[in-house]
Nucleic acid binder design. Structure first.
Lengths: 236, 236
DNA sequence: CTCTGGTCGTGTACAAACTACACAACCAGG
DNA sequence: CCTGGTTGTGTAGTTTGTACACGACCAGAG
């Protein structure tokens, strides 16, 4: 693994612009995994990339990082180009850089996790349930796994799930979000106790009417994304 | 944020090799934050990058990613070039890509977190206590913050701290690791109960002699890195 | 108007986990 | 033989998590 230079020499010189003629062969891209709820199930937004003879192939929205933009900006740009939304949550997920992940060229892709309050349809966008994704191009299968893993993990100790809701939700709505992401049921009474005790939501003073007892509507409190001690336990 | 192409068009074309003459202006590097314990305090390994008139400047070991190597391999190569060790733990941390982070050229750097069982001295390597780091080049101040944050966070629900120890440690040694990383004391008896209950360590049948009662020596169990329910609580 | 289905909202008993804390065992060295 | 400093163990009290039942309330059917 040595490059032949003397030990202790400063590796920083490699950061200088490459000499003329030897341009860097590694490109940088971003990919965004957009999650949203549809009919109580967690869905991800995909773009069709090409149709082989017998099967279509999908990938997450993404693109090259421009020389003057940051990774975060590039991710938001790529997200908004395909998926129109007012997503509040966009967080870096992981950098994928295996040499063979993109056939033909060497691309290091920084993946992002995006949470949207609604799964709006748009031109070229396909929403698929997370537990039934179509064949994915590149290494986007691994990207999807990582995204879901991160979302589930952060669910337990942050209020990240609120990125999948808009103000004016009922506690039952919120619970459905948790159940959809975790893939298991929660006890309604214990879940309610826990959420209210942490004071992450505040009643709006309005109610939602339906064929049943009216449900109180809630909104988020001031803090946008907090790391709480334990927002969730085994049974909610 | 539109690039003028029709909506829904496939952004994937950007992944193809750049046309001749228009080479990608964004380079990819890795930086490794190596942590180890020295005299009961958490230290990080730094490399001197340049000496200005009145002050030296340091940075974490790093370098450009080679066209044929993966990010993980590049990180291990850069770590081992500077810091000789048999580090068991090396994990991707975060990708830093602000346009201005590296003066002169656009470099996206994928940072890695490394844990070493010992803080060995080597040519060109400087070990500094984490709570008293010297001035850092680039955005390595933010990198250091992120690394420490990750380490502290994972301490609570994984056995990541074991990367800072070698087999043949006492439970007091292990506790000192936790206290050094967290920066606070833990209750000896509760800590011992917790660690033993999780069966992450196994007695080696040997003891360490000293001027006091002999201490039993432990090693790690088979599983290398596990995510435990709650390895740590407030008082250990 | 009454009935009914289905949801909303609350409280209580039990079990498990966390926290605080004290004492004897043991060795090296004086 | 005594002493200092560490290792090793257990118990009581508090907090947190878990399981579970019942009345309140509305819309719609009859």
């Amino acid at each position: 693994m040595s490059d032949g230079r003397r030990p202790g020499s400063d590796d920083r010189k490699r950061r200088s612009p490459a000499p003329p003629g030897t341009h860097a062969a590694v490109a940088v891209a971003v990919d965004v995994v957009p999650f949203a709820l549809r009919e109580g199930r967690l869905h991800a937004a995909l773009i069709g990339v090409r149709a082989t003879e017998e099967s279509r192939l999908f990938a997450f929205p993404g693109g090259r990082v421009q020389p003057e933009e940051s990774l975060d900006v590039a991710a938001r740009r790529c997200l908004e180009r395909h998926v129109p939304s007012e997503g509040r949550f966009l967080e870096q997920l992981y950098a994928f850089g295996e040499p063979g992940r993109d056939p033909g060229s060497r691309v290091v892709s920084v993946a992002y996790l995006a949470l949207l309050p609604r799964a709006d349809d748009a031109d070229g966008v396909h929403w698929y349930p997370c537990d039934d994704l179509p064949p994915l191009a590149y290494d986007h299968g691994a990207v999807a796994d990582k995204a879901l893993e991160r979302l589930q993990g952060k669910l337990a100790y942050t209020n990240i799930a609120f990125g999948l809701l808009e103000d004016g939700f009922t506690l039952a709505d919120l619970q459905r979000v948790y159940e959809a992401v975790l893939g298991r049921g929660l006890d309604r009474r214990n879940f309610r106790k826990k959420v209210l005790a942490l004071e992450l939501v505040q009643p709006l003073g309005r109610v939602r009417h339906g064929p049943h007892r009216p449900a109180e509507l809630f909104g988020f409190t001031e803090r946008a994304l907090v790391t709480v001690e334990t927002l969730l336990t085994k049974k909610g």
